[in-house]
Amino acid sequence: MKIKYVTIIVDDMDKSIEFYTEVLGFEVDDVFDLPGGKIVLLSNGDETGFELIQNSTFKTGFYSVGLDVEDIHKEMENFRKNNVEIAMEPTRISVGIMARVIDPNGVNIVLIQHGT
Rank of each mutant, 00 (worst) to 15 (best):
M1L: 09
I3N: 05
Y5L: 13
Y5H: 15
V6H: 07
T7D: 00
I8D: 00
I9C: 02
V10H: 04
M13W: 03
S16Q: 10
S16R: 11
S16G: 10
S16D: 08
F19N: 07
F19I: 12
Y20L: 07
Y20V: 07
E22Q: 12
V23Q: 04
V23F: 09
G25S: 05
G25H: 01
F26W: 04
V28I: 14
V28F: 04
V28P: 07
D29C: 04
D30E: 11
V31D: 00
V31W: 04
V31A: 03
V31F: 05
V31E: 09
D33M: 11
L34E: 09
L34Y: 09
P35V: 09
P35Y: 02
G36N: 12
K38P: 02
K38A: 05
I39Q: 03
L41P: 06
G45Y: 08
D46F: 12
D46A: 14
D46Q: 14
E47M: 14
T48W: 00
T48F: 05
G49M: 02
G49D: 00
G49R: 01
G49Y: 03
G49I: 07
F50Y: 14
F50K: 05
L52M: 02
L52Q: 01
L52P: 03
I53F: 13
N55R: 10
S56N: 14
S56T: 13
F58H: 13
K59V: 12
F62D: 01
F62Q: 08
F62V: 12
Y63G: 05
S64V: 08
V65Y: 12
G66V: 04
G66Y: 00
L67Y: 11
D68E: 15
I72T: 01
I72S: 02
K74E: 09
E75Q: 09
E75W: 06
M76Q: 07
M76I: 15
R80I: 14
K81N: 10
N83K: 15
V84Q: 07
E85N: 10
E85K: 15
E89P: 11
P90M: 06
T91Y: 06
R92N: 13
R92H: 12
I93M: 12
S94K: 12
V95H: 10
V95Q: 11
G96I: 09
I97F: 15
M98D: 10
M98I: 15
R100L: 11
R100S: 10
V101N: 00
V101G: 02
D103Y: 01
D103R: 02
D103T: 00
D103H: 00
P104N: 01
P104S: 02
P104K: 05
P104R: 01
N105R: 04
N105L: 08
N105F: 10
G106P: 05
V107D: 00
N108H: 12
N108S: 13
V110N: 04
I112R: 12
I112S: 08
Q113G: 03
H114M: 14
G115T: 14
G115P: 11
